[in-house]
Design a protein around this nucleic acid. Sequence first.
DNA 1: TCCGTTTCGAGAGCACTGCTCTCGCTTGCG
DNA 2: CGCAAGCGAGAGCAGTGCTCTCGAAACGGA
Lengths: 236, 236
Amino acid sequence: MTAIRGARERARSEITAAIKDEARRQLAAEGAAKLSLRAVARELGMASSALYRYFPSRDDLLTALIVDAYNAVGEAAEAARDAVTGPDAKRPVARWSAVCAAVRTWALAHPHEYALIYGSPVPGYTAPRTTAGPASRVGLALIGVVRDAHAAGALKEPAEPLPDAVVGEALALGAELGVELPGAVLTRLVGAWAQLFGLVSFEVFGQFNGVIAARTEFFEQAVHQLARSVGLAAPR
Amino acid sequence: MTAIRGARERARSEITAAIKDEARRQLAAEGAAKLSLRAVARELGMASSALYRYFPSRDDLLTALIVDAYNAVGEAAEAARDAVTGPDAKRPVARWSAVCAAVRTWALAHPHEYALIYGSPVPGYTAPRTTAGPASRVGLALIGVVRDAHAAGALKEPAEPLPDAVVGEALALGAELGVELPGAVLTRLVGAWAQLFGLVSFEVFGQFNGVIAARTEFFEQAVHQLARSVGLAAPR
DNA sequence: TCCGTTTCGAGAGCACTGCTCTCGCTTGCG
DNA sequence: CGCAAGCGAGAGCAGTGCTCTCGAAACGGA
């Protein structure tokens, strides 16, 4: 990304990465609440005060981990979208389901990191500005699938009246993103985006315990229905 | 609820309530992460060690708050369901929307308490058994609305093939709950339940910041569509 | 090459946390 | 009345985030 100038910068970026790695380890093992700067420093064999040369506070470390986690899910989603090949590549529903499944798989594999980004916002109750970009990658991946389907003429636009305020806002959002999609579709898309994470969160956070056992099948069915709601498949 | 025997029990339950009240105050003000037993004790004018006579640990206090929060949303949902009167009382969609709106309103009014129950599971990563009952009240309220609609013959059952594993499990769940509903409807219901909280969580946790402004209208539209997906209104 | 500036690591220390233990006082029951 | 159980307060332990200071190391310009 950025050229490393001297040995000092190199060492600095290496140590920063080592700190994040160790922090991620502790995060995966014990959760965000028990992540301790002193324990990270101890494990790395350095004084705890030295760690503040790299991260001004515990919240800043957490923010860095949040950004990384957003990028990790986003990357998983994009990779899944692009990995759909063969005859399925022409079926938008297949790509949609692949993206959703990738999000779910990543979340189940990294529950604490998932909780960090889609659970309660721990640091200060308002996420910093830097997280906005990476946070939108999954949403953009979903939009991309629908945009392609629309361009290919494979989109069944839902014929249903929606409030003007909602549709207008959706169109403004589409213009901002440079995506040409009907307002109703964009509205449904935002809803499906949120609802996808509702499904994943309930599974990761244990809300389905004792309620649903065949979770993969259930998830796939729900995701298929979300696809239908945005027009990727015929209704009924 | 339970008869209070002597003055000692009375004092105990009063102090327990006072502790929870103060803890809830701090929770609302600063969030679960900053809730401190010592601060609660300080505010109540007692030694921190005395507090351990009432709650064996911080996690136990949090668990008590979790149960109360589940009951609070559940009660709000049930009250909203029962408060639909007049001509709307016969329209299942109206009751459905009322329940969903009540959940959203409660969540926006108590964001930190909401985060406690539907955000990351803070204590120990697995919720205690005692939370299971109160946690299901919102779901049961939603089921109730659909059950009534079904009994009144106002349910449009979705004619769509679902995996056998999912449907069978849904029927087992219905039997366990003593509710007679088609498997497809029950499956959709569980999905709608999770998706409702996806919508609410995204709004409460700030994921809609800069994406959606007309949130009430958006929410109502999404909830209406959820109602349609479970058969409470005609598709299309 | 030298020298001043910047960067870094380590240690001590502060205020705070959850939690335990012990000590007396009070309360209520037999 | 007496005794055991319940209770509050205090001291104390181990751990936390964070700050400050000090000496050593690395760097860049002269």
